[in-house]
Amino acid sequence: MPITFMQQFHFVVLPYLVMLIFFLGTIFRYRKAPYTYSSLSSQFLENERHFWGLVPFHYGIVTVLAGHVVAFLLPRQILAWNSQPLRLYILEITALVAGLLAIVGLVGSIVRRLTFSKVRTVTNTFDWIVLSLLLFQLLSGVYVAVFHPWGSAWFSAAISPYLWSLVRFNPDLNYIAMLPIGVKVHIIMAYVIIGIAPFTRLVHILVVPNPYLWRRPQVVRWYRAPKEVA
């Protein structure tokens, strides 16, 4: 099947474009407006539903994303793991449960933001766009997982080589040309989300507690350098 112009656009131009936007955007924002580099927590305004929304959502989505990354980096190992059906089922069910967990949490968060007026006050248009995109993406992901099994297998066999071809600047669309429409939509939406991330609260993903985990408890800053005391 010949590769159409639209395919070229969605699966070659778009990924390069969004990666460029992502890197330039996040770096630029970090330099120019470090103050804004976080997610605006609303836990202070509403504490209970916050737990039931945010915790399942984050644990779910982190697990799912980690799965995607591993399949991208180690496709052969995943295929080897899947060579026994039981192990394949374990992997697939874990992924599905994580995805469902993320959906439950996200829906919880959206309902929370809609119902509590104080939380609604601190929610802007971009937040609603992000929440909608994430919900759509999670739903499409679960749809793909359910109706196009077994994702862990074909991701490693088709998507991973396709992504690697992009990384090598030698795009090869043959891997994905035949994929069902649901999968393609899921991929395109992923690119869109990466593309808008620098302009939304999603930048908080890039923030890690560093160097907290290995620093001493107290932090002292000197205006002039302190003399070493023997």
């Binding site: 620093r215 107290q218 932090v219 002292v220 800053r221 000197w222 205006y223 302190p226």
Partner: peptide
């Protein structure tokens, strides 16, 4: 984040 600190002086 190490954002909180005590001024040395």
């Amino acid at each position: 984040s190490g954002a909180l600190y005590k001024r040395g002086e």
